[in-house]
Design a protein around this nucleic acid. Structure first.
Length: 566
RNA sequence: GCGCUUGUGGCUCAAUUGGAUAGAGCAUCAGACUUCGGAUCUGAGGGUUAGAGGUUCGAAUCCUCUCAGGCGUACCA
């Protein structure tokens, strides 16, 4: 239910009836319960333009508001705010209508766009570490969200499979005589370290490594085969992580750095032709207005850089993938880089003017002390280890709670542990750095996944207890039911906002508010008690059912599973 | 040096993009149980939104300066 746009229409009609023109009518949530459910704050701006008393205008508008359906009451308040209350009967009808809807009332967008979401992008030379966590889960949430809303989403996993370090790695791979699928590659981190040791200790090996870099680039079959088997193995590791993390990236979504190799010289040609780049100190550079240093697109030795690859990728995404919007879910530290390549790509016509280019930036993951997240000895934390620890800790947190079978406990711990890690990350506004804290994320209290999962499990418990099938209408009667029903209907507006701004935390805040309201409702309004009449019982059961459905759908967009009991 | 970015109760975070008395959660204190799952709910205290100016009906949000942190900054990605 698009509540805000419905309200906008009603207010627009009222404005028209009062002979006032307004270009955009923005309805916001009321800041306090006394101020109703929604408010329209635009009168003050209009008053300035019209040079009239805002309260007078507001009063005129309020008189014209249609009170026959959605709205039960409107009031003028303060300097000219218009406060809006929604009608209980309307809420009853609307919630009843979606209680059995798989989309819980969320419509598909009318005109789907093609949206490229570039996320995860691990480097094949190394094991995935915590640095990849945020991109993977924020990007995946964004992709899932857009898909749910009906957009045509194209996931792109821009893996790093090209560069000098691969010469060393395949030389070592050859020396170890493995096909890439054996034990030696199981711990990529170790493999890299071992290779580096060899590189440093043996001149002969180092030369071979350098030679192999050149050979791969020239298309040498032997070296390419080695390289391919290495990439396969490394990608396999990533896929294990994706599976654990519940991230929907497959091989189909992989479009590696190397994919763009044959397009790089064309990029330079285009830039030269259009006089966008110039040669400076032997390198091919683009000097952008306002930048002190140039964006280098080709090194003095002829080699290309990541700006070049990104330009090729941008071109490909526009020309071949026909994207309308391209989202890069990448660390905030690369802001300048994206600003540069976005500007260049548009100047050079590699990306059409109307295509929306966005850097979906996020902050760094910190430890409790506010320092970048590292292992005790200062190394990078492997993502698999972190996820495994999450499951262990989740098991610890719930094992005394109830008698569960081993299997139940295991699947529950997975949903809870992984959910906790993801939710903690997704629930803060993505651009700020975030502090990683096990105890906090695995708490039943506060804005955590466990609290949502707990609420869901409680709802299922009530529904199980009722035993019969629940059919019938929701009848919104009191204040708390009013708030709950309204929250349930706000789901679509919340998702829309989150999709436009690419802010998953909008969804988590919403879920937390929803669950809080539900808990209050549940406390105040008994559902199954004997003295509750059947009509009320059914209405409340349906509210509980719908709440459960929304929690489930909301969490699933975040890539988090619910559990039937905890 | 230049550029980008951040600064909100003791701690972790919000604030619908310029709206009403800045909201939550932890933690602290005080309440509610013969519990539809109390790992819950109710309430209290705690703020000059880093500081100083400015813009206007109205500022955490926009502008200027200061202070403090983070990040980036010519051939890594």
């Amino acid at each position: 239910m698009k509540i805000k746009s419905e309200l906008s229409k009603i207010i627009e009609n009222a404005l028209n009836s009062a002979d006032i023109k307004a270009d955009e009518i923005v309805i916001s949530d009321a800041t306090k319960p006394e101020f109703g459910d929604y408010q329209f704050n635009g009168i003050m701006k209009l008053a300035k333009i019209l040079k009239q008393n805002p309260r007078q205008i507001a009063t005129n508008v309020v008189e014209q508001v249609d009170l026959t359906g959605m709205i039960s009451k409107v009031e003028v308040a303060g300097p000219g705010f218009i406060n809006i209350w929604l009608d209980n009967r309307w809420l009853s009808v609307q919630t009843t209508a979606i209680v059995n809807d798989v989309r819980v009332g969320v419509e598909q967008v009318e005109k789907p766009k093609r949206v490229v979401v570039d996320y995860s992008g691990p480097n094949m030379a190394k094991q995935m570490h915590v640095g990849h966590l945020r991109s993977s889960i924020i990007g995946d949430t964004l992709a899932t969200l857009l898909e749910f809303l009906g957009e045509n989403v194209i996931r792109q996993n821009h893996i790093g499979d090209w560069g000098t370090q691969f010469g060393m790695l395949i030389a070592y791979l050859e020396e170890q005589n493995t096909d890439g699928n054996t034990q030696e590659l199981k711990d990529l981190e170790q493999f890299y370290k071992d290779a580096k040791v060899r590189f440093d200790e043996s001149e002969e090996f180092a030369n071979k490594a350098r030679e192999y870099v050149v050979k791969i680039q020239k298309g040498d079959t032997h070296c390419l085969t080695l390289w391919q088997s290495f990439i396969n193995a490394s990608l396999g590791h990533c896929e294990e992580v994706y599976k654990k993390l519940n991230v929907n990236l497959t091989r189909e979504d992989v479009r590696a750095e190397s994919f763009y190799n044959n397009q790089l010289s064309k990029v330079i040609e285009t830039l030269k032709e259009k006089d966008i780049s110039t040669t400076s100190n032997g390198a091919e550079c683009v000097f952008l207005e306002g930048d002190e240093t140039p964006t280098i697109v080709q090194k003095g030795d002829g080699g290309f850089l990541y700006a070049t690859t990104d330009l090729a990728a941008l071109n490909f995404r526009d020309k071949e993938l026909k994207a309308d919007r391209i989202c890069y879910v990448v660390d905030a530290r690369q802001a300048q880089h994206f600003k540069q390549v976005f500007t260049i790509s548009k100047q050079a016509g590699m990306v059409a003017e109307e295509v929306v280019l966005e850097h979906i930036a996020f902050g760094t993951m910190m430890d409790k002390g506010g320092k970048p997240f590292k292992t005790r000895d200062g190394g990078t934390v492997k993502l698999v280890d972190l996820l495994d620890e999450a499951v262990v800790r989740a098991t610890e947190a719930i094992k005394d709670r109830n008698i569960h079978s081993k299997e139940e406990l295991a699947s529950m711990a997975k949903a809870i542990g992984i959910g906790a890690v993801k939710y903690a990350d997704l629930s803060i506004s993505r651009e700020s750095n975030y502090i990683f804290n096990w105890d906090k994320m695995l708490s039943f209290e506060g804005n955590t996944s466990l609290y949502m999962q707990y609420a869901y499990a409680r709802i299922q418990s009530i529904l199980r207890k009722y035993k019969a099938e629940v059919t019938g209408d929701i009848l919104v009667e009191d204040e708390v039911e009013h708030r709950l029903a309204l929250m349930l209907l706000k789901f679509e507006d919340t998702l829309t906002k989150a999709s436009i701004e690419a802010t998953p935390h909008t969804i988590t805040s919403y879920l937390y508010d929803l669950v809080s309201v539900f808990m209050k409702f549940y406390e105040l309004n008994p559902i199954l008690r004997d003295d509750i009449d059947e009509v009320t019982k059914i209405s409340r059961l349906q509210l509980a059912t719908l709440t459960g459905n929304v929690i489930e759908k909301g969490l699933s967009i975040l890539g988090i599973d619910v559990v039937e009991k905890i």
